[in-house]
Nucleic acid binder design. Structure first.
Lengths: 303, 303
DNA sequence: GGATTGGATTGATGATGATCAAATTCAGGC
DNA sequence: GCCTGAATTTGATCATCATCAATCCAATCC
């Protein structure tokens, strides 16, 4: 099943293919399949060897992990995004399952071809590095979110993020079932329901899948959003795609913190060092030492 | 301060520099600093711009995250390992702080030089991709560990992993303070203490920092270790280093699941599909659909 | 030695989250 | 319109975990 031109362009616009040669792109997409899957299809099981890189072109996909008959959602993806790239790169078994939440169009790219391309085209392996670095940082955020915050706080921040991503209007719609959201936030559906009830006291109005944040300031006082945890602006994806299917030259990106960074277009940061409505706060418990490196040593050269 | 030859070779042996040219390696290590830091030194603060890739040559380093006056440790590193590579690659702000737990020797490599090298030497950006992929998967494991298991289970699995990594003897020593372990496992020191007390009932004997697993089978019945969460064998690091400072040719690694994989030397796996003392279990709740992709469509080509 | 310090442990209590059960709402299907 | 099944909500109860407080212990420092 061949891709429509539109789809090719959307794939071409992915950060992963930013700056790669037409040959490489051709080689990688040559043996690709574009498939449509119904909702609820398991694309890949935890522990399975991974033969393809998946690209979600349309629909909704959940990545989940299992242990001891329990399962948890690690991420919910929307188009356009790639998934299980790390396993593909290493030619390793999947650490998580992937399943469609809605009917989805998914492009499958040969892992073999990708690994070959990475060793051939330096631009591609460079793009791959940036892609993975972005994914890595996404997970760091998730882990911090999970370990440092309580359920209601996670929900509050989720809602704030959604509001921003959906355009910033007072009212928006949850992108999927609450049951799935609960799993993503690391709680049971019952507790999610109660967490919503709690947020009612902070100006949040729930109406089925419709959420209204009536008093954002109040909610933020509870949520304490933090740019080092919450990625309000979507990481890359279509932001990188130019209508022409080209993307910014690597030179521009490599320059010191200028232009749109690959992972995140650097949310508007205030003057000087400020970087969020909610600063990390001055009160930090003082650890044993907190000194900058001792006066730089006789700074010689090595290697 | 110039590196000793031994140190240069240890750095050269890192997976990150596997297969890179001497020129690239030289360019990257040219402006490097080797510094010794006392215990408890904060090398890097959350939110700071990252100018260096750090390489821990000796000592112990903790990576931690903070929010709302609470902190949690995301990883504890031992030599030889690199850290905050993702932030360096993207030239982004650090998402976590790094501090020495013990007196440490740390090599600092210029981020600028590394990013330049990634765009110059395809072998290097390829190695970087594999490195990041390994780190990514490490975090997936952590997140699953955190979301799916309870405190006692996390501890039990931690102990089992330590036993294996330290050689498999019945008795071993905790590599650092329990306070730090508690934070790593996502619990309070008090609860860690109680979790240890609980494990006493499963054949675990605690004597200060000395831990004895008297009845591994019993403990494993509680812990239910899983290769998709627990990485019993250390990921890469010195495993890759050849005494000569060279490492396996990429060709060997790229081949389908043979030879020592870069992330993990593929723990001894049983026959057929088995891969761990504790299988993921047959009982899996049946989701809506669990089918393999529908009969492959008219499988055309795209791109 | 004796005092001091910080880590580790233990106990008591409260908060948070999970589980079980039942009621309720909602979307389709007939 | 009514039925049915699933999602969601609510209530009650239990398990887990955090917090506060006090104690114990070992290392260190005069």
């Amino acid at each position: 099943m061949s891709m429509r031109v539109v789809d090719v362009e959307r794939v071409r616009g992915l950060p992963l293919f930013c700056g790669v040669s037409e040959e490489t792109f051709g080689a990688v997409t040559a043996g690709a399949f574009l498939q449509k899957f119904p909702a609820g299809t398991t694309l890949l099981h935890e522990g399975d060897p991974v033969d393809f890189l998946y690209v979600l072109l349309d629909g909704l996909v959940e990545l989940e992990g299992t242990w001891n008959d329990k399962e948890t959602t690690l991420a919910v993806l929307r188009p356009v995004s790639t998934f299980i790239f790390a396993a593909v790169a290493l030619d390793a078994d999947a650490l998580m399952s992937a399943r469609t939440v809605e009917r989805s169009d998914i492009l499958m790219l040969s892992g073999e071809a990708l690994r070959r391309a990475m060793q051939t085209d330096p631009r591609f392996s460079y793009a791959a590095t940036l892609e993975l670095a972005g994914c890595y940082r996404g997970l760091v955020r998730s882990l911090k979110n999970q370990k440092l915050r309580g359920g209601a706080e996670r929900l509050a921040n989720y809602l704030i993020t959604q509001r921003v991503r959906q355009g910033g209007a007072e009212t928006f719609t949850l992108p999927h079932e609450k049951r799935l959201l609960a799993s993503l936030l690391g709680m049971t559906p019952e507790n999610l329901s109660r967490a919503f009830a709690t947020l009612t006291g902070y100006g949040v109005v729930i109406n089925g899948p419709e959420v209204t944040i009536a008093r954002p300031v109040v909610l933020e006082r509870l949520a304490k959003p933090d740019p080092l945890i919450d990625n309000h602006h979507p990481p890359a994806s279509r932001l990188w795609a130019r209508p022409s299917g080209k993307c910014g030259p690597p030179a521009a990106r490599a320059s010191r913190r200028t232009g749109p960074g690959c992972e995140c277009p650097r949310p508007v940061r205030g003057p000087a060092h400020g970087r969020w409505p909610c600063p990390s706060g001055p009160g930090r418990s003082a650890p044993p030492t907190d000194a900058k490196p001792p006066p730089r040593p006789s700074a010689g050269r090595a290697g």
